[in-house]
Amino acid sequence: MSKIIIKNDKGPADPVCFQVKGGLAMKILIVGHFSESAHSKITGHFPQDWNVVVVPPGEEMLQHIADCEVLIPEHIKVDQRLLANAKQLQLVQTGAGYDNVDVAACTELGIWVANAAGVNAQAVAEHVMALILSYYKNIPFLDRFMKNKLDEHQLEYTGGELQGKTIGIIGLGAIGNKVAAFCRAFDMKVLAHARRTVVQADGLVQMTDLDTLLSTSDIVTVHVPLNEQTKQLINKAAFEKMKDSALFINTARGGIVNQTDLIEALQNGELAGACLDVYESEPLPLDSELRNLGNVILTPHTAGMPDARKFHRKRYDFFIANIKRVANGEAPESKLNQL
């Protein structure tokens, strides 16, 4: 009899094991804040005879940590303290970002760590373009105007075309390359800065240093992981180098940007606007000043989730394939450590 365990705040769930090729029994633990709809989509996507336990962060999570073999940490830090309770853990599987995982600590304990690099590249790049177009075409304002049934003869607004504008892409991985390709289709000039050497076969992206990118771009978009080198990379000094007319976009990680400096730049006219999907603190506090700024477009960290809130079909397909690999004694794809 196949069984899926869906754990939420309403009651306990007793885990059972599933068998995979090779006879290895596994228990999968997903930790995060999910609605009932998200529960259904996520667990329903796994094979029906797999044991998938979904719990929010908290005390009950620690009970399941003790005997899970696979951990998918959506809203928790995987550090030495947590790992001390994870006696059976074999794989920590994340999405594209893995700044919440202590990879070195996992390696010391013989635990694989893998992310899903590139899986959400199309989704995030499309979201970036949607934000850019919404900003320059003033879509949020025009939508409110129409729905408020105002006199169209009194309509006044500013907008712009993308053709001829320069976009600066910080980080030229899977997502950055997708954004570059989309922007070229809009006849934009594309600059990029990357810590590692990037070879451009088509020659359509001009690699440059960060200062030149910041000072010459009409749009600056961030696509780097959050780590010690990129933490608060975009701060007051960076905003001072940007054009007063520039648009800043962040769909990567909130910690890459000093949010206080960003708000000050937006309020003082040092920056024309911003489009944000990620924040220093998530969910974005209800009293955040960002919610009150008319030159900002906000989305709730959904750039990489095109199928539904907290669900991305391609991502979970990747998770399932990687779990099967580890269950069969193989190394996971997109591994972040060596065992």
Results as ranks from 00 to 15, higher is better:
Glu270Asn: 14
Asp99Phe: 02
Asp261Phe: 02
Leu150His: 14
Lys189His: 10
Ala174Tyr: 11
Asn85Met: 12
Ile219Gly: 01
His45Asp: 10
Ala327Ile: 00
Gly254Trp: 04
Ile139Val: 14
Asp67Leu: 11
Thr230Pro: 04
Lys7Ala: 11
Tyr136Val: 12
Tyr279Phe: 15
Gln63Pro: 06
Met146Gln: 10
Thr158Leu: 05
Glu126Trp: 10
Ala104Leu: 13
Lys87Tyr: 10
Ser215Gln: 13
Gly164Asp: 07
Pro12Asn: 14
Ile65Cys: 13
Glu333Phe: 09
Thr166Ile: 07
Glu282Asn: 09
Leu247Trp: 02
Trp50Ile: 05
Leu213Cys: 08
Met188Ala: 07
Thr216Lys: 15
Ala116Lys: 03
Glu240Val: 03
Val257Ala: 04
Gln200Ser: 15
His75Ile: 08
Glu228Asn: 13
Gly164Arg: 10
Ile175Thr: 13
His153Asn: 13
Ile263Ser: 00
Gln163Leu: 12
Ser334Lys: 12
Tyr316Lys: 01
Asp261Gly: 03
Glu270Asp: 14
Thr107Pro: 12
Leu109His: 12
Thr94Arg: 03
Ser134Asn: 09
Val124Tyr: 03
Cys183Tyr: 04
Leu233Arg: 10
Phe145Arg: 11
Ala252Gly: 11
Asp67Gly: 11
Glu60His: 11
Ile65Gln: 06
Lys241Tyr: 08
Asp317Ala: 07
Val92Leu: 02
Lys178Trp: 08
Ala105Ile: 13
Phe34Ile: 04
Phe186Ala: 11
His33Thr: 15
Val55Thr: 15
Thr208Ile: 06
Pro56Ile: 01
Val101His: 01
Ala192Trp: 09
Gly273Gln: 03
Gly58Phe: 02
Leu142Val: 04
Gln154Ile: 14
His312Phe: 13
Gln48His: 15
Gly255Thr: 10
Pro332Phe: 00
Phe239Ile: 00
Pro12Leu: 11
Leu271Gln: 00
His39Phe: 10
Gly255Met: 06
Glu282Ser: 07
Phe239Lys: 03
Ala252Met: 06
Gly294Pro: 12
His64Ser: 07
Lys310Phe: 13
Phe145Tyr: 14
Gln88Lys: 13
Gln206Ser: 15
Lys310Glu: 15
Tyr279Ile: 08
Ala117Trp: 09
Leu150Pro: 11
Lys87Phe: 10
Leu131Ala: 13
Ala123Val: 00
Ile132Asp: 01
Val124Ala: 00
Val103Ser: 07
Pro283Leu: 04
Gly23Val: 01
Val16Gly: 13
Gly269Tyr: 05
Ala252Glu: 02
Leu276His: 05
Ala238Pro: 10
Glu289Ala: 14
Asp102Glu: 08
Pro12Thr: 12
Asp99Met: 01
Leu266Ile: 00
Ile170His: 03
Arg195Ala: 13
Ile234Ser: 00
Gly254His: 08
Val52Gly: 05
Tyr157Phe: 10
Glu264Arg: 11
Gln154Gly: 15
Ala303Asn: 10
Ile30Ser: 04
Gly95Leu: 07
Thr94Ala: 03
Val296Trp: 01
Arg313Leu: 10
Glu270Leu: 13
Pro140Leu: 03
Phe248Cys: 03
